[in-house]
Simulated assay, not measured.
Amino acid sequence: MSRLSTNDLDRIFKSLDRKREGHVSIFELQQLLDRVGNHATLEELQILVGSPSLDYFEFFFFYESVILPKISENKEGKYDGLESDLLEAFKVFDINGDGFISSEELQSVLLRLGLWENCNGDCKNMIKVYDINSDGVLDFEEFKNMMSLSDSSKGLLF
């Protein structure tokens, strides 16, 4: 998974802080981590966080000190470095594990992460832009192309 921008983290925090109380509970944090494939028990999070909730700045610190180093670890296998990170991100979006990202999978993940409120037709259009072989889905190579092109401009597309 690629490093998230400050804007992405801000949107995620606001999405989790539904009551607008200025904090996110470790239960809400656990649900988010589970959705993106980083499983932790409430007890583990309580130890890491040291309190039952995180305010805005603690949430950013948690990402920078706990999640980001985990993302950056070099994984053994076919891919290394950036490509390994991209493969992990691809797996998050490939919900059914078929090796492709459909517009429905893209929409589901973006909505769960709070990164896009309503992307019905937009998700299909986003895939269409990077779908080189016009099969209606993104394979890993097309996903890498999308991420490298979007990362070189103003950040990620979503």
Rank of each mutant, 00 (worst) to 15 (best):
S152I: 03
C123S: 15
W116Q: 08
L106I: 05
V49C: 05
Q30D: 02
D34L: 14
K70G: 07
K19Y: 08
H39P: 00
D98P: 07
F59C: 02
G81R: 06
K124T: 12
G77P: 09
E142M: 06
R18A: 15
R3L: 10
E58V: 01
I132V: 14
H23V: 06
L110N: 05
N125Y: 05
L156T: 12
N145P: 00
K75G: 00
I71V: 12
Q30C: 11
E142L: 06
S84G: 14
E44Y: 08
F13E: 02
D80M: 09
D85H: 12
L138N: 12
P69D: 05
S5G: 12
M126H: 01
L111P: 00
Q107V: 01
L45Y: 04
L33P: 09
T41E: 06
L33T: 09
G77L: 08
R11F: 11
E21F: 02
Y79A: 07
V129E: 13
G136S: 11
F100T: 09
G136T: 11
G136H: 10
S65M: 07
R18N: 07
L48P: 00
N96G: 01
F140C: 10
K124F: 10
S108L: 13
F100Q: 11
E141G: 06
L138R: 10
R18S: 15
E83W: 09
G155E: 06
L45Q: 07
G50P: 13
E88N: 11
L33M: 15
M126K: 04
L48Q: 14
D139G: 11
F158I: 03
P52W: 05
E64S: 12
P52A: 02
D55H: 10
V137R: 15
I12A: 09
Y130A: 15
G22M: 07
D139L: 07
G97D: 10
R20C: 11
V24P: 09
N120G: 08
S152T: 04
L86H: 05
R112P: 12
V24I: 07
M1R: 03
K78Y: 06
K144A: 06
Q30M: 13
L32W: 08
M1P: 08
Y56F: 13
D8W: 03
S53Q: 12
E88F: 02
S150L: 01
L138C: 10
Y130I: 02
M126L: 14
G155D: 04
L54A: 01
S102L: 04
T6V: 13
E76N: 11
R11L: 15
P52L: 03
F62G: 05
F93D: 02
G99K: 09
G22E: 07
